[in-house]
């Protein structure tokens, strides 16, 4: 199974509903985004005038460059297939690619906030959320689109898909040939592959030729300088000892559970 998202640029009107719904759903700080909409043009593509949009988000790549860069200590994590119940155990750092649904996820508790993954991502799909600090990292935690995993597991569509006013965002299993997303791939939906790379982005775009040409010409990224990414990651991991990372994990978990209650109390006192 590989979750993927299609953005149909023939339907997209560039309204930004997707980006704002995501902000509301996931409490993304004002300054940051888990997804975005850029407008390109009007400019000439060959002889033709064109203008279209780049509604971007994490590509949950088939071969993500961000995952291997995470310097956090690894743990054994057991994954369960949502449908079959099949399990598998992998050794993962604080970010990984889910072996069953193909999404790329982050464990906020173990993230040391070094930003290596964000630096590595050629799509700028990750950022460090400064609101999320703890004993492990006072710099914040890496954050990005999860393909709304908690919503999807609860049987809902991703927040951006739900709100999309024209049905331009379609979510589903790219490995299922009958899925709507697979049909789009057959029709020619493609990901924005990095220049000279082979990451296999699973957020894919479909549109008129001139619009796709404009999208690719303006937003095909380069691979990051991994040497630099790694030096930074190494330094960060040295500065944040493993023991500190473990400390307080359980306790903070408890605090989290109280979050809603405490929040409400605070509000009602106003």
């Amino acid at each position: 199974m590989q979750y993927g998202m299609i953005i149909d640029l023939e339907r997209c009107v560039g309204c930004h509903a997707c980006t704002i719904a995501c902000k509301a759903e996931w409490e993304v700080p004002v300054e940051y985004n888990r997804n975005w909409v850029y407008r390109m043009g009007p400019s000439l593509v060959g002889e033709e005038m064109a203008s279209t949009y780049y509604p971007g988000l994490c590509n949950h790549c088939s071969d993500p460059v961000c995952v291997p860069e995470c310097p956090a200590d690894t743990i054994e994590m057991t994954f369960t297939h949502a449908k079959t119940g099949e399990t598998t155990t992998l050794e993962v750092a604080a970010t990984w690619k889910d072996p069953f649904d193909g999404t790329v996820q982050i464990d906020k508790s173990r993230c040391i906030g070094c930003g290596a993954c964000a630096d590595a991502c050629p799509y700028n799909a990750r950022y460090i959320n400064p609101d999320q600090t703890d004993d492990v990292s006072d710099d914040g935690k890496a954050d990005k689109c999860t393909y709304c995993k908690p919503r999807v597991e609860a049987g809902e569509t991703p927040a951006c898909v739900q709100t999309c006013i024209t049905g331009a965002r379609i979510f589903g299993d790219l490995d299922d040939p009958e899925s709507e997303v697979s049909k789009y791939v057959k029709k020619g939906a493609v990901g924005i592959e990095v220049n000279g790379g082979n990451l296999g982005p699973n957020s894919r775009y479909y549109g008129k030729k001139k619009d796709m040409d404009l999208l690719m010409a303006t937003h095909t990224p380069e691979l990051a300088d991994m040497g630099q990414v790694r030096r930074r990651a190494m330094l960060a991991s040295l500065m944040k000892p493993a023991v500190k990372k473990v400390k307080g994990l359980g306790l903070l978990g408890l605090v989290g559970a109280l979050a809603v209650k405490g929040f409400c109390n605070e509000d009602s006192e106003k």
């Binding site: 906020k108 508790s109 609101d131 978990g253 989290g256 559970a257 929040f263």
Partner: peptide
């Protein structure tokens, strides 16, 4: 919600009998 949580006294958290969430930082949706 998660930010407000960080501001809570730790003792409150320990005294709580609510369940443990794996990641206190992840907004719940």
């Amino acid at each position: 919600a998660s930010l407000a949580a960080v501001a809570l006294p730790l003792s409150d958290a320990i005294a709580s009998e609510t369940g443990i969430e794996p990641s206190p930082f992840e907004p719940k949706g």
